[in-house]
């Protein structure tokens, strides 16, 4: 007979009211709520389009500019060290912010499932606070209010701009990691807890030996998606003047003062990000498939 569509929730009734599209949309909404942003989905065609965009715009800029001017691609090559040095900042910032955010966020997430009400409430408030704050505002906050150096006794540790930006970017990351952890733990069926309790494990043992190992599968893909979102967000550091790639691109444009350069340089910046993010995106998709986390 006619199609029997899967339902929205396996626990509900046996009525197939809505088609898989609804299911897909709901999963997506839940996932994006954990991540606090839409997940980028890269495929090789994006790279191809960027490369084509770079070449075409470079060609156009070439045709527009007068005789004797340096070819656009040569300009990019000449500035390559400056641009790539900026890109290195993006990568370092994203790495450190992710590391710090994951460390703190995991603890915060575990505190969110604590049995102690004050701990639970407190960590929930912290998580929601940093989830609701716009990334750029948190970045400003850290840029302006963290000192430029720390003094411990006679030792003075400099605290450069990019490190402040790293902390600023790690705040939303830790909040989202906290949500990912909480969501993953809650997704484990309560039967697992009951079975473990009946075997006389204590809560700590249940959490670390039974629940969390099962969560890793579910957490890894969103965690990697979060990294992709963070990497894309590192360009925000240019607004507060960190010498990352967008800032450097702006400086190159100012130094060259050729309007035609704008699109080629930006295309090049995006291409660098693509080259870095694409393998991660493929890997994430592979993991999602392997762990059968439906999109």
């Amino acid at each position: 007979m006619s199609r029997r569509a899967p339902r929205l929730d396996p626990g509900g009734t046996d009525l197939p009211v809505l088609l898989p599209a609804a299911d897909h949309l709901q999963r997506r909404a839940v996932r994006e709520r954990e991540l606090g942003a839409a997940v980028p989905r890269l495929d090789w065609r994006h790279g191809a389009v960027l490369l084509a965009g770079l070449l075409v715009s470079a060609g156009l800029a070439q045709a527009q500019s007068g005789e004797g001017q340096e070819p656009v691609l040569e300009v990019i090559v000449r500035w390559l060290p400056v641009l790539l040095e900026g890109f290195l900042f993006n990568i370092v910032i994203s790495f450190l912010a992710m590391a710090f955010g994951t460390l703190v966020g995991t603890w915060l997430g575990l505190m969110q499932i604590s049995l102690l009400l004050p701990v639970r409430t407190g960590s929930w408030i912290v998580t929601q606070f940093f989830r609701n704050a716009p990334w750029l505002v948190l970045l400003f906050y850290c840029m302006f209010l963290l000192p430029f150096e720390f003094t411990i006794g006679s030792l003075t540790i400099p605290f450069p701009d990019w490190l402040k930006a790293t902390i600023g970017l790690s705040l939303p990351v830790l909040a989202n990691v906290s949500e990912i952890v909480r969501g993953a733990v809650n997704s484990i069926p309560s039967g697992q807890w009951e079975a473990s309790e009946s075997l006389a494990f204590n809560r700590r043992q249940i959490l670390w030996m039974i629940i969390l190992p099962q969560c890793v599968k579910r957490m890894l893909p969103p965690w990697m998606n979060l990294y992709a979102i963070l990497t894309m967000a590192t360009v925000l550091a240019s607004v507060v003047g960190v010498s990352e790639m967008m800032t450097q691109a702006g400086r190159v444009l100012a130094a060259e003062d050729r309007p035609g350069l704008l699109i080629p340089i930006y295309s090049f910046v995006l291409l660098c990000f693509f080259v870095y993010c694409y393998p991660i995106a493929r890997w994430t998709v592979a993991l999602e498939r392997r762990f059968q986390v439906k999109l």
Partner: peptide, 8 residues
């Protein structure tokens, strides 16, 4: 629009 930073 999905795959580039909104700042860009």
């Amino acid at each position: 629009f999905r795959n580039t930073p909104p700042l860009v």
